[in-house]
Design a protein around this nucleic acid. Structure first.
Lengths: 168, 168
DNA sequence: TTAAACTTTCAAATATTTTTGAAAGTTCGG
DNA sequence: CCGAACTTTCAAAAATATTTGAAAGTTTAA
């Protein structure tokens, strides 16, 4: 396969992949494009490569910056802004874990805390089933929360070298 | 908060949560409902509780069964089918991990293998950036694949007890 | 074998999300 | 300042995903 085709496949699959993870297609595609680009790209470059509108490009680049996956780059002698993506994939993974934890796991834990205090007859089977489920989800979520915190601080070498052995 | 309201909140939040994870709202809501129900429910019960149509209920229950999260239950003396969800949340998590790995990680690995063989001048900076990125994603994905395999086989006690310590 | 009870399907309708692009806003060199 | 270069916004349009419900299919008790 030629580079041009391979690049297209990578971008398009990364986009499809993103949609299974609550990330929109364009945002994932821009990310993919920047990850495989040796140099920073301007918004116009991105629009041209991916065939998307100015508004779409702008909004999704901004979102990638919010997620900490892309940064603005100043190119000497150029008026416009350029963008480049973090290339260290382990950093990317940690950054995504960190953001999703903040956006999803933490609110979920808050909800579970609140739901655990539901009032009612603890002998009633509906009450019991509810509290059991909420309680066990909370327990697991708390554990996941702590584990992810530690993972966010870990080095790639840990992941690549040590985790597997532990499981065995 | 009263049980009725708490149940509704749980169901509705579990549904919203699901949408961030590529699971549709109704499917997640049915799952939530079944998890907090002391007894198995019929399709009509589910339709009534969640206010959804027959077709929608049927399709999403089927999908939950495909995912291995819900099972059909025979209730003595009843003609219709009943459904119940796995209550052991650790089993639920492992099951979800297993399915997503199969559906997403494995196809991704196949793609990366293919893309790694892209032909071209390895001195060209576009080529180099592409191969570097693809290569490092592949490396990490392979590691994740193995790690998840081991996790799928692990006991809850492992997760709750041991993982955290290792990270430190 | 029949018909009532129940389940599944799927085309059309609805809802949700994403994208567009033109207009408004901002920045900066001169 | 001015105006060209550039960025951001957002209402409307398009694309995508989900839901409906009636019709077709299946199962079972008698």
């Amino acid at each position: 396969m030629k580079l041009t085709e391979a690049r297209q496949q990578f971008i398009s699959n990364w986009g499809a992949f993103g949609t299974h993870w609550g990330i929109n297609r364009t945002m994932a595609q821009i990310h993919a494009l920047l990850m495989i680009s040796p140099d920073a790209l301007s918004q116009d470059d991105i629009m041209a490569e991916l065939n998307i509108s100015r508004g779409n490009a702008n909004m999704n680049i901004r979102e990638l910056i919010n997620w900490g996956l892309v940064e603005r780059v100043i190119v000497a002698g150029e008026r416009k802004e350029f963008f480049s993506a973090e290339k260290d994939i382990w950093k990317v993974v940690r950054q995504i874990v960190k953001e999703r934890k903040k956006r999803e796991l933490e609110p979920m834990l808050q909800l579970l805390d609140k739901l655990e205090n539901t009032e009612g007859d603890k002998k009633d089977k509906h009450m019991k089933a509810f509290l059991d489920t909420v309680g066990s989800i909370k327990k697991l979520s708390k554990q996941a929360d702590k584990t992810l915190d530690t993972m966010i601080k870990a080095e790639e070498s840990w992941f690549v070298g040590n985790l597997l052995k532990l499981f065995k």
